[in-house]
């Protein structure tokens, strides 16, 4: 079910403001791709354009192509709701549905797709997804309790469980650990390692050690200058980016000589 993503000549706008310009990139399947770069360079914006979440902001729009497994995401015939069902997303701050139990949170996406779910099937999905998110052992005795009652790290893993419950082709993560403590962060990083055997994962991170730890490939975004749009500077295997990057700007950024 994992799919590769081809992005060509992507321009991303907020109204008249061009936030990200001219991105071309191929994101390989069953692998983790990290997006790094200074804040405001458009990493989140780019990530959100991959599952058409960008356009939920009034006035936001996109030019160019995003092709997932031969299917053009921005084809006029494609329903954005359908795209989002196939490309899951995990946000910077954990956002479980506040009134729902742990179990209902996991099932939320599935219930949108398929209203009538047999209890036994639902139980299977809940266990499989929570196992998949490394959360099962911690919550299996309180599945009926509210998701908000969990710690931040557990909530984030619950959100991951919710995203993988619908078995998406791709999983997008926008700084999934930035609101978590080091122990939860390492739990989520371990999880990302395990998930990449089944999913194509794109992760935004401001933490370069994290990019180095979890990803196969890294894409470095940068601003051409103040008020200019963000651009993709370089995409290469993570090992290469962190040892001998092609671009001087990448080198400057990863070695902390940024500015």
């Amino acid at each position: 079910m994992a799919k590769s993503i081809d992005v060509s000549d992507l321009n991303i706008y907020y109204g008249d403001f061009l936030a990200v310009e001219g991105v071309n990139m191929t994101i390989p399947a069953r692998s983790v791709t990290a997006l790094i770069g200074p804040s405001g360079c458009g990493k989140s914006t780019f990530l959100r354009s991959l599952n058409r979440m960008h356009e939920v902001i009034p006035g936001a729009r996109v030019e160019g192509k995003v092709v997932v497994d031969g299917q053009s995401m921005y084809d006029p015939a494609v329903d954005p709701v359908e795209v989002r069902r196939q490309i899951g997303m995990v946000f910077q701050r954990p956002n479980p549905f506040p009134t729902m139990s742990i179990r209902d949170n996991v099932l939320a996406g599935l219930r949108l797709n398929n209203k009538k779910l047999k209890k036994a099937d639902a139980d299977d999905v809940v266990e499989r997804s929570l196992q998949g998110a490394n959360l099962w052992n911690e919550v299996k005795d309180r599945l009926g309790k509210p998701g908000m009652g969990l710690s931040g790290g557990q909530q984030q893993r619950l959100c991951i469980a919710r995203a993988i419950a619908v078995q998406p082709q791709v999983l997008l993560m926008d700084e999934p650990c930035s609101a978590l403590d080091p122990i939860s962060t390492s739990a989520v990083e371990d999880l990302i390692h395990e998930l990449k055997t089944d999913y194509t994962i794109v992760i935004v991170t401001h933490n370069m050690q994290q990019a180095a730890r979890v990803s196969e490939d890294t894409a470095f975004f940068n601003l051409a200058g103040a008020g200019k749009p963000g651009r993709l500077v370089e995409m290469n295997p993570t090992k290469k980016i962190f040892s001998v990057p092609d671009q001087e700007a990448t080198e400057a950024y990863i070695s902390g000589r940024f500015g």
């Binding site: 946000f91 939320a108 919710r162 619908v166």
Partner: peptide, 12 residues
């Protein structure tokens, strides 16, 4: 945050 949680799951 909560609205986007639903939208990202493919909610209409």
């Amino acid at each position: 945050l909560n609205e986007e949680a639903a939208l990202a799951l493919g909610a209409t």
